[in-house]
Design a protein around this nucleic acid. Structure first.
Lengths: 174, 174
DNA sequence: TAGATTGTTAATCGATTAACAATC
DNA sequence: TAGATTGTTAATCGATTAACAATC
């Protein structure tokens, strides 16, 4: 993984001492501890907004539980696909978002929606108590309201990084 | 963008001087220069391997030209979807990969395929002269053969980062 | 000349690496 | 005791920030 032993020891010490000097690490215990730090033992209720190509891909391929998230709802504004099954869930009308959230209190939202509607959706969701966003839209969520956690995934930027690498013969796989 | 003026000047100077002291930058010229550095003015022939949910999402939503790439072929092993249209292209049988590459000489490949077949596909593509990979599979491409450029996108890692942020109340939007 | 803005050098900061003490 | 391995401090490296010279 391109990491030195020294770096691993330093990093682990940010969270505490997990090994025994002269003896080593209990690997399975260490693994569990790291999992706890990352929060993979949680089941945070998560909803997906937007069941287009990307939303569908994520709903099908991402193992949410593996990251401590539990996908409990999928929403879309397209009435033609509302009611359709997607994985183990059924696509719900975005108009029912408020009702659903008041009843189920999700904490995390995955945003697979166009830039133009993202601000409105984020406003509605924060109002409803959602504090964490996995954001695939091109809109940059404005964290004026602190205590909100955002993980942006801008795939276009990633392709641009590759393009730079191609044009400058860089091995950026580190 | 959370950048200081100093940082921008430093970064620009890695590539040369683009402004005039006391006067400023010619913004549209600077923009063009940065574009050239990133290679967005190129039209590198690009193929997409795997037309599942994720591959479809990328084919539809990503503006390849904007990053200097030109999508010229889409391949899948599923005979049921071979021949189907996808965007402006038609899904081609993966068995025709060699023929297509010898004729069209693509430089970049987007990998939306399962981990299990990635090594084989990468071997075939490098043999055919493809040197750059935008890799969405979970397989870590082994760059033993230098001169190969890889940009990995592991969406699961991104969700795990969010999970850590949620559990430790970190604002990681910087 | 005064004000403004870039280019470049120096200072600061943080992260990586190396060294070594502690311990089995 | 010798060898091995973690925890922790010190040294090194690189990137960010600050300072200032150059220029309009």
């Amino acid at each position: 993984m391109h990491l030195t032993a020294s770096q691993i020891r330093q990093d682990l010490n940010c969270f505490g001492g997990f090994g025994q000097q002269g003896y080593g690490y209990n690997v399975s215990e260490l693994r569990k501890e790291i999992g706890r730090i990352l929060g993979v033992d949680k089941h945070r209720k998560t909803i997906l907004i937007g069941a287009g190509n990307l939303g569908t891909a994520l709903a099908v391929h991402i193992n949410f539980e593996k990251s401590g998230c539990s996908l409990i709802g999928i929403f879309d504004s397209n009435k033609k696909i509302v009611g359709n099954p997607l994985g183990k869930l059924t696509i719900t009308d975005i108009d029912d978002l408020e009702k659903f959230c008041r009843e189920n209190k999700p904490e995390v939202a995955v945003l697979c929606i166009p830039k133009s509607v993202t601000k409105e959706i984020v406003d509605r969701l924060t109002e409803l108590g959602v504090r964490s966003f996995w954001n695939f839209s091109h809109y940059d969520i404005n964290v004026e309201h602190k205590n909100i956690i955002v993980e942006n995934v801008h795939l276009g930027d990633s392709l641009l990084t590759l393009s730079y690498g191609v044009n400058n013969n860089l091995d950026n796989d580190k």
